[in-house]
Amino acid sequence: MLEINDLKKIYGDRTVLDIDKLKMNKGETVVIVGPNGSGKSTLLKILSGVIAKSEGSFGFDGELYYLPQQSIPFRKSVRKNILFSAKDSTDKEQRCNELLKELQLMHLADKNAKGLSGGECQRLALGRILINKCDLLLLDEPSSAADIEGTEIIENAIKRYREETGCAILMTTHSPRQALNLADRIIMLREGRIVEEGRPEQLLSAPQTEWGRKFIGMWKID
């Protein structure tokens, strides 16, 4: 589905991303965790084509959609934001209504999206992505501005979409709870390199490195 080989991003004399190998299977959800500046967003930006890689290669099958951390709401109504992002199809109005209900935005459907709160904006941004079908979804901290209820709505929508489309998901988060809730596999990044990788229960019980043990030790799983 997705294959990365010796992928690097270098700014001046600083290597911010250095991934030897990473493979993802069809339908798999991989969650990347790590401290600020560990290269999580840089990886997604390179894969989506927002920034160029410095070295190495990557490839994926099918169509990719990417949700950046700061997805801007367009100067339109919430409904029009979603419809504007949809590819032409006969059932897009119906799918838009379903998403508005699922993301609990129906009561704001005809309001200008510029007036939404941070959490509502993130739900809208996800709705704009989920109106289309894709094979690989890249999500950069999709619920960082959402409250507990908003986070649950977002996670449920991601799960439903994954089941319905069978797409693979590569996402980043700072929430251990979210990583454990959504991931088939968790990757820990530190200074641009993969330091731990495995199934959630495997990582929690037996981290391979001292840094991994410390990082997991700081997780407060609510």
Binding site: K45, S48, G49, V50, E63, L64, Y65, Y66, L67, P68, Q70, S71, I72, S85, A125, R128, I129, N132, L138
Partner: peptide, 10 residues
């Protein structure tokens, strides 16, 4: 930010 959002939405 607009370009990045648009790129993500293909």
């Amino acid at each position: 930010s607009i370009s990045e959002t648009a790129k993500g939405l293909n």
